[in-house]
Each structure stands twice: as structure tokens, then as C-alpha cells.
């Protein structure tokens, strides 16, 4: 039975990750989703390129692109959908998070 992945990733997000990894100019195993317990009211996500896989990382494989999830972040991203959105003057990734209850005004931190 296929293992249920902790997060889902939209096509747009997967394409953009692939593009960025190509442009990075050095070999990467994928990207790592992390969490930081600082911010204006709690925690915030981090997205970084990953040079290696840590033993405790949860690995989501999308046709060759690996998304590594830091064990501390698993709980927060569980069940979320990672999307890539392009707005008028800005673009970037976003997690649609059903677990989330509140956000700070700037949208950078959140509570669970």
C-alpha cells in the first residue's frame, strides 16, 4: 500500500521547486520545510534548499523532487497543501493549513 504523504503539493508548486533547484547552480537533494519558534506571535515556516537528508526527515518524493520535512515541522504541516501563487506584485509558496487557527497581521507566523 502506498504510504500516505504528510503533505500534498500542487503542480504549480512542484514546477516552481524544480525550476528553482535547476537555477540554484549546485546539486541539491531537494528542499527542506522547517519551523521556527520565533515570530511576532508564535512560529513560522522556513523553506530552504537541502544539501543532504537528515536521519529524522520525513521525505516526500514528487517524481524525483524531494521535499524533506523537519521532524519538528511535521505536526504543523500535516494535511496541508503546498501551493505556489503568483500575485500582481509578488509570488511565493504557501501552505493551506486546516490546522491553523490564527495568524499574525503580517501573515508570517501562526498558531496551532
Amino acid at each position: 500500500m502506498a504510504k500516505k504523504t504528510p503533505i500534498t503539493v500542487t503542480q504549480a508548486a512542484a514546477d516552481q521547486i524544480r525550476n528553482l533547484l535547476d537555477q540554484r547552480g549546485k546539486p541539491s537533494v531537494g528542499i527542506r520545510v522547517g519551523i521556527r519558534t520565533r515570530g511576532c506571535s508564535g512560529h513560522s515556516y522556513t523553506l530552504e534548499y537541502a544539501d543532504d537528508i537528515q536521519p529524522m526527515d520525513e521525505v516526500v518524493d514528487l517524481n524525483g523532487v524531494k521535499i524533506l520535512i523537519d521532524p519538528k515541522a511535521i505536526l504543523f504541516v500535516l494535511g496541508t497543501e503546498m501551493d505556489f501563487v503568483e500575485e500582481d506584485l509578488e509570488n511565493g509558496f504557501k501552505f493551506q493549513n486546516p490546522n491553523e487557527k490564527g495568524r499574525c497581521g503580517c501573515g508570517e507566523s501562526f498558531h496551532v
Binding site: G34, R36, L47, E90, F93, K94, R103
Partner: peptide, 22 residues
């Protein structure tokens, strides 16, 4: 909401320190 960018390992800026738009 603000959108997330992918950074080099360890280089993620602190919240509110993301690159500004001009």
C-alpha cells in the same frame, strides 16, 4: 498573507526581514 520563498540553508531571514519590494 505573505508568501514563502526558498532560501539557502541557514539563510532564511527573520520574520519581517524578507526582502522588501520597491
Amino acid at each position: 498573507m505573505s508568501l514563502l520563498q526558498i532560501h539557502e540553508p541557514g539563510k532564511t531571514p527573520q520574520p519581517h526581514e524578507e526582502k522588501s519590494v520597491a
